[in-house]
Amino acid sequence: MAAPESGDGNNGAARMVTLISSDNTRFEVEAAAASLSQTLQLTILDGGGGGGDGIPLPNVDSATLSKVLEYCIKHAPAAANGGAPNATAVDRAELERFDNEFVNIDQSVLYSLIMAAHNLEIEGLQSLVAKKVADMIKGKSPMEIRRTLGFPDPTPEEQAEMNAHMLEYGWAYE
């Protein structure tokens, strides 16, 4: 599988690192992008991940890792500017547009992403996905949430327990 493109590809001198997914796919990315992950940053600062070595990521499959890196590559320049205080409004709007589109994906991918972001300590990505999931919950009744998020149908016992719970928590409803 081809490694994702590293940014605009115009900086030939940028240091590259190799990440290896749980299914043994190798991804070559700029160190600056991979360093959005707090966990990877430490290894990279120690000089790891270069040459033929690669950094194994046993908890992240290739589909998820490719998505994670797409996020990191897009956000790396802004992160390098320290949250881009001097970024133009156009740049910020572009990142926002990217983020919105980026999380417009299947729920199962969202959950894999948030797990990966958590394990790799990529705070921005974790918040982005968490907020997206929260938006899917926001303003919905419990029944609607269960339907939207594909919860299994409750067993009769569960349903009875839930009804009792709903009574007890009447103060949290109307």
Partner: peptide, 21 residues
């Protein structure tokens, strides 16, 4: 992570999640 997701919701909706399962 579920707590992180909840942190983007307002309190009343957070409490309402108790009947989900």
């Amino acid at each position: 992570l579920l707590h992180t997701i909840m942190s983007f919701l307002k309190a009343r909706q957070v409490v309402q999640t108790c009947v989900l399962s």
